[in-house]
Nucleic acid binder design. Sequence first.
DNA 1: TTGAAAGCGCTAACAC
DNA 2: GTGTTAGCGCTTTCAA
Lengths: 333, 333
Amino acid sequence: MKRTTIGAVAAAAGVSSATVSRVLNGGPVNEATAARVREAVDRLQYTPNALTKSIFAGRSQTIGVVIDDLRSPFYLDLMRGIDEVADANGSLVMFANTFRHDGREAMQIQSMDEQRVRGLIVTSAASADDRTYRMAAGGTPCVVVARTVQDPPPRLHSVALDNIAAGRLMAEHLVSCGRRSVGVITSGPRPSQLGRTEGLRRGLAEAGLALTADDIVTVDGDDGAEDAVATLLQRRPDAVACVAGRRTVAIHAALLSQGVTIPDDIGFITMDDFAWASALGISVVAQPAHLMGQRAAEFVVENPAQPRTVVFEPTLVARTSCGEATDDGAASR
Amino acid sequence: MKRTTIGAVAAAAGVSSATVSRVLNGGPVNEATAARVREAVDRLQYTPNALTKSIFAGRSQTIGVVIDDLRSPFYLDLMRGIDEVADANGSLVMFANTFRHDGREAMQIQSMDEQRVRGLIVTSAASADDRTYRMAAGGTPCVVVARTVQDPPPRLHSVALDNIAAGRLMAEHLVSCGRRSVGVITSGPRPSQLGRTEGLRRGLAEAGLALTADDIVTVDGDDGAEDAVATLLQRRPDAVACVAGRRTVAIHAALLSQGVTIPDDIGFITMDDFAWASALGISVVAQPAHLMGQRAAEFVVENPAQPRTVVFEPTLVARTSCGEATDDGAASR
DNA sequence: TTGAAAGCGCTAACAC
DNA sequence: GTGTTAGCGCTTTCAA
């Protein structure tokens, strides 16, 4: 199953392979010769080998993305943003899903490096940081998403969310809807989760409300949702704030299955907007995921040497799941 | 920004590059020499160039996926299935999103071919068929998803759904819930849509119910949902069947915004299961998307010469959006 | 404007 | 076991 090579085309057109290369990549070539070459390309159905090309360039035209969990609405939108600017820049995107399987991350990043990707976008845990540092040091622009890195070396950029502000937004909305004791669901001690929880704490504190360690529970995957919610409900909160966007479905289902009604018994707010949120009346704090993806890809394409960091502001999308907001924060449910 | 090459490692270890290659890829090497080489690899942080490797193999280890629209729950699950078997086979997946932008498809397939992907999985329109045929003819295993191809050449496989059965399932459920006049929403004259509509027609016919051309309207993107639903509602159907899974959100929203209540005024059933369907009580006919993705990737990995076709059976996931089902099909709402 | 030749980083024969 | 020598398919000097 031998493929047509540039040499075969050259032979068919009666020119040298250098000439074929020139007509394909735009060098100075006689129009008549060029026409002959193009005819041969068509006739032989020649498809240039991008792999070989990349050997010369030193790298491919592909942008690598190592992602946590494609199912999360946030990552989906992020991907679309990345894909858009990749496409606009003649790049393809190569993609690997870690499914939060630690250890897989490092291997996948390594694979991307072996593929000589034009740039790397990672949404993974800090565990893979040294591999990323190494890649950046090797000259590949890297972008860490959803997390800032301290003291980044050249070519290591980040695109993040102001998580404190996100938590604060949640708290303010909850308070303005008259909620006074909120339970928090987090997916673990990652920076984003910690930041949002801290924001929540501060926002609540400003209203004279305290958030104690007991008010915060950790979900362990979707399967842990029932347990987490049951634990939280024992403290009889009047609202639940979920700072782990990817667990929204499971937490919401658990809430309902425990027999509470939203927003009458309990208010509910979560992270990341999603298509069905509006049908369900679920209030959320949204990240500009699409924009963040675009920005990340732009960092790759522009490839600045100096490390860049951009922090986006979250926005509140108030619907009905926390009750009605009032200016003075009085209860209105 | 020169990268470490195999030659540099060889020099550092005082051996030839052939020996380095052997320790990396498992050839017969003296353990002492091997140790020295590995030390040099670590010290120099050598990352082999997968691109160059692929030149020899004639192709890369990457599986290409050209997808319609990542946002659709079906494609998301499909991707996860593909990714799983790719990962298990040491392959990465390279991905391009056409967003149904005709013409982009052909270009993206061409790009995949230039990347010498190990195999191609396409979910695209028939418009790109000749490019796919050509790739298959060139020796690259290709899998068309969600559509069967007639008279496939060697290495052109397909993974599809029994669309007629899907439509029939919808019809049967609707009928058993006592619905007698159903309106259908489709996204256009693609084989899958046509098949499901035909299945619906047959299923309804068996219950003595007719489906006329006026009962079928086409949505033009999410923005067309309001119009499509308004048109359909003028005929006062007692149920709406949406055979375009990707439009579920928009159609559902349009239904509500026109003031109908589900299932009291109108029954609603759609294609493809999704995480929130259960919270919303929406009945669906589901495709085994995850399995289909796995199967598609397996065809690529196994690379049989003979064209293979596998047609999956859809399943009904009955919830509450059509009312309660009864055995005799009497109304029960 | 074109061709010959060198070489990108690696693997695969073939000797030793 | 290990080194030498050819390439893989392409681009890129350098002459002509």
